[in-house]
Design a protein around this nucleic acid. Structure first.
Length: 590
DNA sequence: GCCGTTTTCGGCCCGACTGTTTTCAGTCG
């Protein structure tokens, strides 16, 4: 899929260059959008070129089509090349500097021949930037600060790291006097696997308290630096470099603000356009009648003084736009708005739909709890079944089981079953997929198990040919029910196997082999895009915690989020099936 | 550059905050 990524980066770079050159903003936005579309594509863009279906993708027009086709054919784009010659490439990273935008960068380049961060730093030191119109002393100080902060900035961080920070802030804000609601929004609420910053919305009964709440927020102990502070919007940075934005609004505007700051940006643009078509306007304060809104005097940081069509809840606003409620995880402008208009949104999977967990470990290998303790914890979650799947012998570090130990372990699982009622224990194994695709146990052993997960743990830097052969062989192997964390990636740490998924999914569907969404952070493997295409190929998905303790058994949330972002419903998910249906599925590989 | 059940031309989401300024431009989300 790296061609998609390359092309996505190409369009993003072209947009940056055009931005600095001061080209039409909407043209820049159009290119940025194409970049995002390409990054989000769940299939290889070459397919579209081959089938001549590029222009069927909304947002890709004739110009983008020409660039993509040229790039696919030749590995280059003449448009991108000539753009690249018009601006020093070393200017582009300056766009990442807080406080520096395209206009200022262009001005620094034209007025003072600044072409990179080092020259900028030097010029700030020697005072040669003084005297440029519209750039005063404060602006220069802000640029200096921005350059200094760049090294400390966290960049995008994993959802697993961002969520606890967000929950801490939300808890603190809820306890402030006068706050009626507080909720995190943004990409965190949409459940993206990485988060740029944390957006928090809070509502107040009495708007005169807003300033006090903002003051309290920027004074929290976790705050390392204040970026901005006004009566309705404040931004801070934590010691770890994570930005947190707080919006404070009257209670009756809470839904509109939550909707607006949950995004995504593309989703917002689309529904605002929809509002305009219906002679209404939508902003973070509410949905308003357009004619009335335009006649009204507005004040900065105050709700417009007219009665909104809807504003208190997201549900009301969607309803007034003629849309079914769109769950945050789907708000990415990937067709969800049309689906909501036509009442065709999927009923996304929820925790209640899950009937069991098919991937867990005990003290027999590298887990922290006994079989019985894990079973009791699973029962407490309301599960009907739990698969005990300890490691196989090659996972030496994880104390993997030799065949002899596995046979005894199966007997232990049966014994534990006798001691607990109300939950069914499946005797399983998480068997290593060896580098050549063979499994770590012989078939004679595998057939003694109720369920087999096969996972790659070692040799995760194989080339594509070897990796695909390896996984194909595993998918086809008799007794293998689920492929666990198929790529072996770690978010922010390890790329994982370079798998070509479409043919693999086809094979998995034909063989009745399920694919796992491993809920453990930072795995989340399969990711949302591959989960979606697996499901479209007819592959069953298993959402599992890979729990190594009773506490981890509760951490199914992130896996469910991936599944929801992939638009999965209960019928796509193996562990939403009744025990009988699950057993029938498992039996087909025997 | 993209798009169209009012439009193939003329729109394109909208507001808060900051800084450099007296009415607005740039940046950010």
């Amino acid at each position: 899929m790296s061609l998609n990524t390359d092309l996505s980066a190409l369009f993003a770079t072209m947009a940056d260059i055009m931005d600095i050159k001061g080209e039409n903003t909407f043209k820049v936005l159009a290119f940025r959008k194409v970049g995002r579309i390409l990054a989000d594509l769940s299939f290889d863009v070459r397919e579209c070129v081959k089938n001549n279906t590029l222009c069927e993708i909304e947002g890709i027009g004739p110009s983008s089509q020409r660039i993509i086709e040229e790039y696919v054919a030749t590995g280059r784009s003449s448009d991108a090349d000539s753009l690249a010659q018009s601006v020093p490439a070393t200017l582009l990273p300056l766009l990442q500097v807080e406080g520096l935008g395209p206009k200022t960068i262009s001005l620094l380049w034209k007025e003072r021949k600044i072409t990179n961060a080092d020259e900028l730093k030097a010029a700030l030191e020697d005072g040669s930037l003084k005297g440029i119109k519209t750039i005063g002393d404060k602006k220069l100080a802000a640029i200096k600060q921005g350059l200094a902060n760049r090294a400390k900035s966290a960049g995008r961080i994993g959802i697993g790291h961002a969520l606890p920070v967000a929950e801490m802030f939300v808890d603190l804000i809820r306890k402030l006097p006068g706050v009626t609601h507080a909720q995190y929004a943004g990409s965190l609420r949409r459940g993206r696997e990485t988060i740029g910053d944390i957006d928090i919305i809070c509502s107040v009964k009495d708007p005169s308290l807003s300033q006090k709440i903002a003051d309290a927020f920027v004074a929290f102990p976790a705050v390392a630096r204040i970026i901005g502070q006004g009566p309705s919007k404040s931004s801070i940075v934590t010691a770890s470099g994570l930005q947190v934005d707080l919006r404070i609004l009257p209670e009756e505007n809470f839904g509109a603000a939550l909707l607006y700051f949950t995004g995504s940006k593309d989703h917002n643009v689309k529904i605002r356009g929809l509002a305009l078509k219906k002679k209404m306007t939508l902003n973070e304060w509410g949905l308003y009648n357009l004619a009335e809104y335009e006649k009204t005097e507005k004040k900065i940081a105050e709700a417009p003084p007219l009665k909104p069509v809807a504003s208190r809840t997201e549900e009301e606003i969607y309803a007034k736009l003629g849309l079914d409620f769109i769950p945050p995880e789907l708000r990415e402008d990937r067709g969800e708005i049309d689906a909501a208009l036509n009442h065709k949104l999927p009923r996304l999977i929820t925790q209640k739909d899950l009937r069991g967990d098919l991937h867990s470990h005990t003290t027999a290998s590298d887990g922290k709890n006994s079989i019985l303790e894990m079973a009791q914890a699973a029962k407490a979650l309301g599960y009907e079944y739990l698969a005990i799947t300890d490691h196989s012998k090659s996972s030496v570090i994880a104390n993997g089981l030799t065949p002899d130990r596995l046979i005894k372990h199966i007997a232990e699982i049966r014994k534990a079953q006798d001691k607990i009622k109300g939950i069914t224990l499946l005797a399983g194994s998480e068997v290593d997929i060896l580098p050549d695709g063979r499994l770590d146990y012989e078939e004679a052993i595998l057939k003694e198990l109720d369920i087999v997960i096969a996972s790659p743990h070692a040799s995760l830097k194989q080339d594509a040919a070897k990796a695909n052969d390896r996984m194909r062989r595993a998918v086809e192997t008799r007794y293998v029910n689920i492929i666990g964390h198929p790529t072996g990636r770690l978010i922010g740490g390890r790329e994982g196997l370079p798998l070509d998924f479409p043919p693999l999914f086809k094979l998995a569907a034909a063989n009745g082999t399920a694919m796992e969404i491993n809920a453990g952070y930072p795995r989340l493997d399969l990711d949302e895009f591959n989960s979606r295409s697996a499901c479209e190929a007819g592959v069953m998905i298993s959402i599992d915690t890979d729990a190594h303790s009773t506490a981890e058994l509760c951490e199914i949330h992130f896996g469910l989020t991936v599944a929801r972002r992939a638009a999965l419903t209960a019928k796509h998910v193996l562990n939403c099936q009744s025990l009988n249906d699950l057993r029938e599925f498992l039996r087909r590989k025997r």
